[in-house]
Write a protein that binds this DNA or RNA. Structure first.
Length: 326
DNA sequence: GCAATGACATCCGCGTTTAA
DNA sequence: TTAAACGCGGATGTCATTGC
């Protein structure tokens, strides 16, 4: 099928869509509006990978079934090799994996874009989402229905997604800010039209209009990350310790020296008067330590000795419980 | 010799997003 | 399409001491 033919077909579909503008489609970012069900794949994934011509034929046919214009994107003035992009992404487990595992750097490296392309990762992701995402779902994952779950490879929540769509100029049909003055806590009545991996396709009755949209389950991981974000950012050492703790949480904490106890005590005291001068605090505490008499130091040294004993005892127990059976 | 222990601002590099 | 802004995570710096 030629590009023109594809354009004409998508144009017709666009017109039919514009006739049903009451439909509220809360689509995920950049994803072409997909059909309720996918066409059957007409080739095996391996064939698509091995045969570039077959790939292009099937992609154009597939794109024609979607309400999007099929146009090969240019990057730095050069047509983007969508076949190569498809292979590189699917060989890494698909778009969701590439995004969540931050593998765009690897994919980007394959294309060897000129240095002038400063946002290659984002461009590749954008074009993949707009041109290859549904194709991947059918020819790689062999899905029969669209799974809009990809809304969350970026791990953002529904609120963010909706807010973005409300700000998206392209989302002509995504007008969340419809004339209805909805507020948090407003009640709506609707029906579930379909269920998919991460949520539901729903229709809500608003006056004389029926608005369709998607409800997502907020991933548990997202909740965790949000909780983390609401608190102060942990220090690099704390993150490192947490990493070590995750590796072996039962390992006893290292013992602290007398100076460690002295430092902790004085740090808390000096902090209010040394706002934002942590290094100055450290130097100050070092000076104070050097000015202590032996008797004064002894108080802290004893704490260190006790902690050392604690550490030794805990390590003995730890080692005996982790000893390899002979 | 390196890492850990207390605290965290600052810098840097990389990936993502936005505006023009 | 691209440059710039932005966000995030890791490394560093300060100190003394100790265990591995």
């Amino acid at each position: 099928m030629s590009n023109n033919a594809a354009d004409e077909k998508s144009s017709e579909q666009s017109q039919s869509q514009s006739q049903s503008q009451s439909q509220l489609q809360l689509q995920s970012e950049g994803y072409p509006r997909g059909p309720l069900s996918y066409p059957k794949p007409e080739a095996e994934y391996q064939q698509i990978v091995q045969n570039s011509q077959l790939f292009w034929n099937k992609l154009q046919q597939f794109s024609a079934s979607l309400p999007t214009n099929f146009q090969i994107p240019l990057v730095a003035g050069t047509p983007l090799d969508l076949h190569r992009l498809f292979i590189e992404v699917t060989s890494r487990g698909g778009i969701e994996k590439v995004i969540t595992e931050r593998k765009w750097g690897e994919v980007k490296g394959i294309f060897r874009f000129p240095s002038s392309v400063t946002s290659a990762s984002f461009v590749l992701r954008k074009y993949y989402l707009s041109m290859l995402y549904h194709f991947e779902q059918v020819y790689y994952f062999r899905k029969e229905e669209p799974s809009v779950s990809v809304a969350d490879p970026t791990n953002r929540n529904v609120t963010d997604s909706v807010a973005e769509h409300a700000n998206n100029d392209n989302a002509a049909t995504n007008q969340c800010s419809v004339s209805y003055n909805l507020e948090a806590g407003s009640s709506l009545i609707g029906t579930i039209d379909a269920k998919f991996d991460y949520g539901y396709v729903i229709t809500v009755n608003l006056g004389s209009e029926n608005l369709s949209g998607v409800l997502y389950h907020t991933p548990a991981l997202l909740h965790q990350s949000q909780r983390v974000n609401t608190s102060a950012k942990p220090s690099q050492r704390i993150r490192k310790r947490r990493k070590l703790a995750l590796k072996d949480p039962s390992r006893p904490k290292s013992n602290r020296s007398g100076y460690n106890f002295f430092f902790a005590e004085h740090y808390a005291r000096l902090k209010p008067s040394y706002q934002g001068q942590e290094r100055a605090i450290s130097k100050r505490i070092g000076l104070l330590w050097s000015l202590l008499t032996e008797a004064e130091k002894q108080v802290y040294q004893e704490k260190g000795v006790r902690d050392k004993a604690r550490y030794k005892a805990e390590m003995l127990e730890y080692k005996s419980s982790h000893a390899q059976p002979q």
